[in-house]
């Protein structure tokens, strides 16, 4: 698991404050229960900033802890450069974690992205099963 340095934490706080002030994420309203692999899985975001944020909650449905990585993809499943805090995390049995994802708009006025929680629960066999639960989000830049 990657250890987040103090500098990283500080920047996260700054960005989180900015996000709270400038971004609307309607899907954040309901608190998901435990044992869910990721919530929310759909959402629309309006942002006054040059980037937008989504908070997702990867969950661990297993009886043992797993390592979960959160990645961001576009519609064609090309990976998108985004700030994900934390990008990689250990989640205890039947627990969930809050992960903040921030994506730049670039020159676009809107963006469709996939936020995917990925995990590899078993390593022992010749054909491992990697699970990937992806939420689809549509973001609009409000000017």
């Amino acid at each position: 698991m990657r250890v987040i340095g103090l500098k990283h934490v500080a920047s996260w706080r700054t960005v989180a404050a900015a996000v709270a002030a400038q971004v609307i994420v309607p899907a954040m309203g309901s608190a998901p229960a435990a044992a869910q692999s990721m919530t929310p899985m759909r959402g629309e975001v309006k942002s006054f900033n040059d980037r937008f944020a989504v908070r997702v909650f990867p969950g661990n449905p297993y009886k043992h802890r797993i390592r979960v990585e959160v990645r961001v993809y576009d519609e064609a499943f090309n990976e998108v450069a985004a700030d994900v805090v934390p990008r990689e995390t250990m989640i205890g049995a039947e627990d969930r974690r809050s992960v903040l994802v921030m994506v730049p708009f670039g020159a676009a006025k809107d963006r469709k992205i996939r936020v995917c929680a990925e995990s590899v629960p078993f390593n022992s066999q010749s054909a491992r099963m990697k699970t990937q639960v992806c939420g689809r989000f549509y973001a609009q830049r409000v000017q």
Binding site: P32, M41, P61, F122, S124, Q125, M129
Partner: peptide, 15 residues
């Protein structure tokens, strides 16, 4: 109940 999808691996494959 949140609308969500849970994937749980049962048996890993063997080639």
């Amino acid at each position: 109940v949140t609308s969500t999808c849970i994937l749980t691996v049962g048996i890993p494959g063997v080639l």
